[in-house]
């Protein structure tokens, strides 16, 4: 992956996350931050892929990063957390694999389609489990905060 491709990816993620936020009618002052959280999740995902960690681990850690960063943003801006994590999730959605699955089912190549179905299920599961882990991290941090006070 070249530097130009990397920059295009980061810009594309930022723009797409913000644009999805506009479609969901997110308040204006949350837009910029949600864009950066989307970039953060994608960067971690790409980092894992480059290190050779595989797409499941990549999506898992990307989702964890999005969940933790969203709670931080929600505390800071005093706004609900879902304003940040819903748009940031969109670049992780397995759109390509889901499309290949539909296409192969429609064309009658069921073996290839099942391979892609498995990938879609694995990625969706990884994202869901990543959110679960981030919720765990958030609860642990809340408990640590309360003890300090």
């Amino acid at each position: 992956m070249t530097i130009t491709e990397f920059i295009i990816d980061v810009v594309g993620n930022y723009v797409a996350t913000i644009a999805f936020g506009i479609l969901l009618n997110i308040p204006r002052r949350a837009l910029n931050l949600s864009g950066w959280i989307g970039v953060l999740g994608y960067l971690l995902y790409q980092f894992i892929i480059v290190l050779g960690g595989g797409y499941v681990v990549g999506n898992l850690l990307g989702a964890v990063a999005i969940g933790v960063a969203s709670l931080q943003a929600a505390r800071w801006k005093k706004m609900p957390m879902i304003l940040f994590n819903i748009p940031a999730l969109v670049p992780l959605v397995p759109g390509g694999q889901a499309y290949e699955m539909i296409k192969n089912f429609a064309l009658g190549q069921n073996d290839t389609a099942l391979t892609f179905l498995l990938q879609v299920v694995m990625i969706s599961g990884a994202i869901a489990f990543g959110f679960l882990l981030s919720e765990l991290v958030n609860r642990l941090r809340q408990r640590a905060w309360r003890k300090r006070e």
Partner: peptide, 20 residues
């Protein structure tokens, strides 16, 4: 018009990100 622009800007950039 901004929602239209946003729909366009979700589609195009993500196509580039996913498929280069």
């Amino acid at each position: 018009w901004l929602q239209l622009l946003a729909a366009a800007l979700v589609s195009g950039p993500l196509e580039v990100v996913f498929r280069h």
